[in-house]
């Protein structure tokens, strides 16, 4: 038995060492990912010394069915800045908490980019996104925050070794929905609309309220993440380009009324204030584009068409050039 235990210990040590080596040296060179895609891509781009990393959600890559140029915002930006290497690490519903974890991961890495672009999506603060069980990315955040364990993220994930605290569907459905500071219902009322008497206009109005009419609190977990991102970037000498993503301001005003403008402007002011206190410019694109720049196939959303993506890429290029 002693011989067996000795050999087993040697074998396990070899496997562990090889796993770390594979993830540190081999995996970033591979054309495909070995681990969890978000983390593996981050490793790859850090290893390849990209100058600018562009974090983001689905808005970065989404293209509408009528678009002739399907390029993502980061691709458009890269095309217009050929001397700068830019790569995006994005996934539908990624939010500031994930970006914070990614920056935290980068701060522990020997390879660091020169700059990071952070989009702030106004809808992400609403319960429709903030509290949605499928949009939490607990696993990714856990491994990004536990640098060493990330070498073993794939096997630990397959074996479900890390049981992160997930939000339940019940909690999500019972989350209050606000109109400014007034509680007007719970998520269930806004996601479970089956009333046949409801007009198309009322449905859209409800969606705009659900997505954008919250009063942004200084204590919102994503605001705390934004502050943390600024702090880590400052410590690690990484330039930050933070911008607020365009919303369909025109549509919101049409269906909700003048309150929509007032509330969303208040919310963006709070975000810009945090940036300005930290001597960072606030690139507020929230109200720059009219309805024609958005894709309306499913519902009023923040997804941009070809012209919209190009507009954001140009604005980002200007911002980077200014700095």
């Amino acid at each position: 038995m002693k011989r067996f235990l000795l050999l087993l210990t040697i074998f396990i040590t070899c496997v562990f060492s090889a796993q770390i080596m594979i993830n540190k040296l081999v995996a970033p060179r591979l054309p495909f990912t070995l681990g969890i895609p978000g983390i593996s891509n981050l490793d790859k781009y850090l290893y390849l010394d990209y100058k600018i990393l562009y974090f983001g959600d689905s808005v970065i890559k989404y293209s509408g069915p009528k678009d002739t140029d399907k390029s993502s915002i980061s691709e458009l930006l890269a095309k217009s800045s050929p001397t700068t290497s830019i790569a995006d690490i994005s996934s539908p519903a990624y939010h500031l908490k994930v970006f914070e974890a990614m920056l935290n991961y980068i701060s522990n890495s020997s390879h660091k980019p020169e700059a990071i672009i952070i989009p702030v999506n106004l809808r992400s603060f609403s319960p429709s996104w903030d509290m949605a069980p499928g949009d939490q990315f607990e696993n990714e955040i856990f491994y990004l925050n536990h640098h060493f364990l990330s070498y073993f993220s794939k096997p630990l994930n397959i074996l479900q070794a890390i049981k992160t605290k997930a939000l339940s569907e019940e909690t999500f459905m019972a989350t209050p929905v606000y109109y400014g500071q007034e509680k007007i219902g719970i998520v269930k009322n806004f996601t479970d609309i089956k009333n046949p008497d409801m007009s198309e206009e009322d449905i859209l109005k409800n969606k705009y309220i659900f997505y954008y009419m919250y009063d942004l609190s200084e204590d919102h977990r994503f605001i705390r993440s934004l502050k943390k991102i600024i702090e880590i970037a400052d410590k690690t000498n990484i330039k930050l380009y933070v911008y607020i993503t365009p919303i369909d301001f025109e549509g919101g005003t049409k269906y909700v009324g003048s309150d929509f403008a007032e509330q969303t402007k208040n919310n963006t002011k709070k975000i810009c204030a945090i940036l300005e206190i930290n001597n960072l410019p606030c690139l507020n694109l929230a109200f720059d584009l009219d309805s024609g720049y958005f894709d309306f196939d499913e519902f009023p959303n923040e997804h941009l068409n070809e012209q919209g993506r190009k507009y954001v890429a140009d604005k980002l290029k200007e911002s980077i050039a200014d700095k």
Binding site: F11, C14, V15, A18, Q19, I22, K154, P155, N157, I158
Partner: peptide, 20 residues
């Protein structure tokens, strides 16, 4: 033999399916 075990274990750890 060790090389075979080693390759199999590392294969399981790195190129296995994406979830349980």
């Amino acid at each position: 033999r060790w090389l075979i075990y080693f390759a199999a274990v590392l294969g399981i750890m790195n190129i296995g399916g994406t979830r349980q």
